[in-house]
Design a protein around this nucleic acid. Structure first.
Lengths: 187, 187
DNA sequence: ACATACATACAGACCGTTCGGTATCTTTCA
DNA sequence: TGAAAGATACCGAACGGTCTGTATGTATGT
């Protein structure tokens, strides 16, 4: 996005680019690397532009996390919609979405960002509320202790995905996925 | 630790206090709250003292994480030493140490710090290496897919512990502990 | 023309780090 | 034994850099 001063105005594109660059910075270098300057440099705009689109740095980060949660939300709901078996439906969707994200894009786009959102206390509150609401809504079909263990294991896979690029042990994801899904079925 | 200038010199106590204060700050307010000034203010010393004991801020944080990993290391080894059953011994110890930390001190002293250490890329490398070494050393007795799921679930409990104070769903820890341990036994 | 979308320049706070100086501790040696 | 000498512990202030945020100027779009 070069020569930004004299190009055509593209407010929505600029806003989108800022969000993407902030997310990428958080993913690749941690949340502490997400400075306003770094985001703007990566997006090819100046701070004036950023503060035009977002009231504060915190508002930018909040928007990034909100988008992440919305995407997770949509993916989980989509997975649940194609599942005829009521029992454990939410847990199966949770496992599927989590594992497939690691399987498909080997870079694990969202993992680092998701975990980062749990370390900053302000973001943690948002994410905790999001997850609690999901669990509460589906407690009728997903309340069994075994299902809880499966969900916890899926959470553990988030962490394993984080460590993957640093020599951490990485499970056989397809096999693990099969096993976890099998544990969510009745009997 | 008041009137620090004219009191008796207590280098080991000061060093220890700095480490504790840095850990507490990271636990309660996130790693980004660990500034040199904040640590020194909490410890009741000046920045000069801190830079006398640690070559840099990074060296201080590295020392905190190293202590955390050493403590985990010792706890796991101690738990393994009292376990007569070879199969799944490491996994059982891992589950025990993780769950008991959350059970005993309800503040979950180490959880937030452990998770935080996974977000900063430099710290992540250390922690990943530590965990990979552990898994590799015990692959003879702890290589079964079910054991891997148990370990992943224990990792998930780290995250659940993080969310606990923010309204996140908290499992019935004693029951969960029993179930996970049962899954590590033969048959 | 007017609102929107940016660039530019700057302010104020805080960051990690350095450094000179002063106290206390430890060793040396008469 | 005890005083000088050197090492260690710590203070306090200052520095250069980077941070978020603001104020203002200038182009574009309608």
């Amino acid at each position: 996005m070069e020569n930004a001063y004299r190009r055509r105005k593209q407010p929505e594109l600029v806003r989108r680019t800022l969000l993407d660059c902030a997310a990428n910075l958080a993913i690749e270098q941690g949340l502490s690397a997400v400075t306003v300057q770094a985001v703007c440099a990566a997006a090819g705009v100046t701070k004036g532009a950023m503060f035009h689109h977002f009231a504060s740095k915190q508002a930018l980060i909040d928007a990034v996390v909100a988008e992440l949660l919305e995407k997770l939300d949509a993916d989980i709901k989509a997975a649940m919609a194609t599942d005829p078996q009521p029992y454990g439906r939410f847990t199966r969707a949770y496992v599927t979405v989590t594992l497939d994200d690691l399987l498909l894009n080997q870079g694990s786009q969202w993992t680092a960002l998701y975990i980062s959102s749990l370390t900053e206390p302000s973001l943690r509150r948002v994410t905790a509320a999001w997850f609690a609401r999901f669990v509460r809504r589906h407690h009728a079909t997903d309340d069994h202790p075994t299902l809880e263990i499966v969900r916890l294991a899926a959470d553990g896979v988030w962490l394993a995905g984080l460590l993957r690029d640093d020599g951490g042990p990485m499970p056989d994801l397809p096999a693990l996925r099969r096993r976890l899904v099998a544990m969510t079925l009745p009997d």
